[in-house]
Computed example of a mutant assay.
Amino acid sequence: MLANASSTQWYCQGQQATYVRTQKSPGGILDLLEMARPGGDMSHPALSDLVLYQDQLGGSRVRGNSGGGPFDVTSEQGVFYLAAPDFDTTVMVDASHQLRSVSFPVAQWQKVLDEAVDGQFSMECLQLYGDPFHSPAIRLALRNLWVLSEEEGAPSRLLVRAAGCEILAELCRLSGAPFAPAKGGLAPWVQRRCLELMRAQLSEDISLDELAAEAQLSPFHFARMFKQSVGVPPRAYLTQLRMEKACELLELTELSVTEIAHEVGYSSNQVLARIFHKHQRVTPSDYRRVVRSPAFEHHAMIRRNTSREKTG
């Protein structure tokens, strides 16, 4: 296999390809793989990525060395393993198993890590190589990232970058990284400007880096401070904005569902329909039909009049 190959190259272009069930590369920022493998040798040569694996089944004996010294454990469902970049990993598994992995290309993510901890920490310092570990925060972030890739096909750069920052932040925290302080939330003018940009560019692929530049912060610190100020991560807020705008366009315009999908940054009406139904519990077409019905308009008018009387 190619020297210094990426995780995706190793698993998808060589003898390992037969075990790969699903491959996703959200925005070219992170690589996601799902693999079903028989028991046996799972070793690989030094890869250029930091790779996080999650055991989907559990119950296997796993032994070897992935960068933090020898280990010999019985794996549990949902547990994580971290493999160091540029390390010849040796791993043996005694039974068939199913894995999901997320790979961080070091060239893209080392700068984010440097900014997060003022250059006092590196991927080599992560203390999680080897023994398996649990993390509800990483489990949630990885599940959300996987769902985003299922729903949207190619999620926006903002969504993927923010999810990557969440996972990397938790890996650093679990390793005792000396985080540089986030210094509270965003300044009011920064928050207002960033939210305006997100609303104005819903149909475009705005990135976390662009928003962070507006705030004059690193992407890592921006993502943390945005959540402190707004209450949800940037990726979740972006989805909220898209749903609100889609509802408005369905109610007030004659645009087709496909046109509305493009207006709010989705690639097709099918993608919009999946996400819209998940959040609104109805399809876009059914939502339009309901909000335009005479009965709905009558009740909406009563609510508006009642509200005016209370404030008047």
Rank of each mutant, 00 (worst) to 15 (best):
M243K: 09
L249W: 01
T306Y: 03
R143M: 11
D114S: 07
V190E: 10
T89N: 13
Y129W: 02
M35Y: 01
L148G: 04
L211T: 07
S267L: 10
G28H: 05
A5F: 03
S96W: 10
D49T: 10
R292A: 12
R143A: 14
T306E: 04
L168W: 08
K310P: 00
F104V: 07
T253D: 07
A46F: 02
Q9E: 14
K245I: 04
S256M: 04
P38N: 01
H299F: 14
G184Q: 10
T90H: 11
A84C: 06
V230C: 11
L50A: 04
M243Y: 07
V73E: 15
A141S: 10
Q216R: 14
A212C: 11
G58A: 05
M198T: 13
L128W: 03
P105W: 11
L82P: 09
V232W: 15
K278M: 12
E259D: 09
I260H: 05
S268F: 09
Q270G: 10
S307R: 15
C165G: 00
S218L: 01
T258V: 09
L126M: 00
P85S: 11
G14R: 07
V282N: 15
G40P: 03
A215P: 03
T18L: 14
L30R: 03
P85D: 04
L168Q: 06
A95Y: 00
T18R: 15
L140Q: 13
C125H: 06
F226C: 10
E251A: 12
K24F: 02
F121N: 00
S229H: 05
P294W: 09
S48I: 06
Q228Y: 11
L217V: 08
A17G: 07
V62M: 15
G39W: 00
W189S: 10
L249M: 08
V147M: 03
K227L: 04
A236V: 09
V79Y: 04
E259M: 04
A162I: 10
D88A: 08
V282G: 11
K24G: 03
A5S: 09
S7E: 12
L47A: 12
S285L: 11
A236N: 08
R199S: 14
V232M: 15
F179L: 12
V147H: 08
P294G: 06
V102K: 01
N65Q: 14
L171H: 06
L197R: 13
L82V: 01
L197K: 09
H97S: 08
C165E: 05
P26Y: 09
I206Y: 09
Q108G: 10
T283G: 15
L195N: 11
V117S: 07
V73I: 13
T258S: 15
Q110K: 07
D86V: 03
S48V: 03
Q98K: 13
C125Q: 07
A212D: 07
E254Y: 05
Q228G: 09
E309R: 10
E34I: 06
E76G: 04
V230N: 11
G40A: 02
E210P: 01
D118P: 03
A213H: 09
T283M: 14
S203P: 01
T18P: 01
H262N: 07
D286P: 00
T283A: 15
I275L: 14
V62S: 13
L113W: 00
V230Q: 06
T311M: 14
S207V: 12
V73R: 12
A46K: 02
R61C: 04
K227D: 02
G184C: 14
V190T: 14
P45C: 13
G64C: 00
G59N: 05
H279R: 15
L50S: 05
P294V: 05
F104P: 08
V160D: 01
L174A: 06
